[in-house]
């Protein structure tokens, strides 16, 4: 543990990693709560796998065509938003075919990413870090992007709290109140897409889904209002990312995977504790 603290004190890359984890946690708690309550975790999964296509394409353009002004994260944002728009459009127009489209996008995004990576000289080893996270490789440019995305996502997520909660709870009633339900749903998907991009920097494409849902699941065992679940899951997410970084540093384990295992262990513990306390309470009430 002291090694980790030394690294935080002395190494810029560790400070960037820590800051990215903490910033992403705020968006993760806010948007993750909406995603869980609106039950669009599968959509978030589809969006996150499309990010590989965006990262691959951006890297290809940078390396092969010399678009030096471009950042890989720009490609990720573009791909995630595009996926959110397509899924949103399909789910608003033809609800029953939603899962087919999500599944197709999921695979096509990955395939496009792999093709671009294959055509980009010297970058095939990046695949692992895209898939499972490369939080220790966050650059200052990435960090600025993370800050901007975080402010945007959290700002809108908090300002539109009442509206988003209403469409998650009862979309039809929200419509009768004159809320622009379809536009709000699209916006929620876009915020989900941007949050996915933030989390891809932390834990990678494949593991995003767990970080978006597990802190909310743990928080949901302890709190029973949307706002409290948001605050609690943000804190939990920050604990998991920081804890995962700390645990993985000395034994040189992959940080993303460590973070996810930590979150899953917490979820398991919270679920078991919840079941035990319910049983104890039931027994006490019988006496």
């Amino acid at each position: 543990m002291s090694e980790f603290l030394d690294a935080v004190a002395n190494y810029k890359f560790m400070q960037y990693a820590l800051a990215t984890g903490l910033l992403a946690s705020v968006a993760c708690g806010v948007v993750g709560t909406y995603v869980t309550m609106r039950r669009i975790g599968y959509i978030a999964g589809g969006i996150s796998h499309c990010v590989l296509g965006g990262l691959g394409a951006a890297n290809y353009l940078i390396q092969v065509h010399g678009w030096t002004w471009l950042q890989p994260l720009h490609g990720a944002v573009f791909a995630a938003l595009l996926a959110a728009f397509i899924i949103g459009f399909v789910s608003l127009r033809a609800r029953e075919r939603e899962d087919t489209i999500i599944g197709a996008l999921w695979a096509v995004g990955m395939a496009a990413g792999v093709l671009f990576i294959a055509r980009t000289p010297g970058y095939s080893q990046d695949l692992m870090s895209y898939l499972f996270g490369n939080i220790l490789m966050v650059t200052p440019a990435d960090l600025w992007m993370v800050i901007a995305l975080d402010i945007f996502v959290v700002g809108l997520g908090v300002l539109l709290f009442n509206q988003f909660t209403a469409i998650c709870f009862d979309e039809e009633f929200a419509r009768t109140r004159g809320l622009r339900v379809d536009a709000l749903y699209m916006l929620l998907l876009c915020l989900t897409a941007l949050t996915v991009v933030l989390l891809v920097s932390v834990v990678g494409i494949v593991l995003v889904i767990a970080l978006l849902t597990l802190p909310v699941a743990v928080a949901g065992q302890m709190a029973r209002s949307m706002s409290r679940i948001m605050i609690l899951s943000s804190i939990l997410c920050a604990v998991f990312t920081t804890g995962g970084l700390a645990l993985s540093y000395a034994p040189n384990l992959p940080a993303g995977a460590t973070i996810i295992v930590l979150a899953a262990a917490a979820y398991l513990a919270a679920t078991l504790a919840g079941a035990v306390s319910r049983r104890l309470r039931a027994r006490a009430s019988l006496k």
Binding site: M37, R39, T165, C168, F169, D170, E171, G220, A223, R224, S225, M226, R228, I229
Partner: peptide, 11 residues
């Protein structure tokens, strides 16, 4: 009906 989760966290 409300189609949301029965445990939807609202008061």
């Amino acid at each position: 009906y409300i189609y949301a989760d029965v445990r939807f966290p609202v008061h």
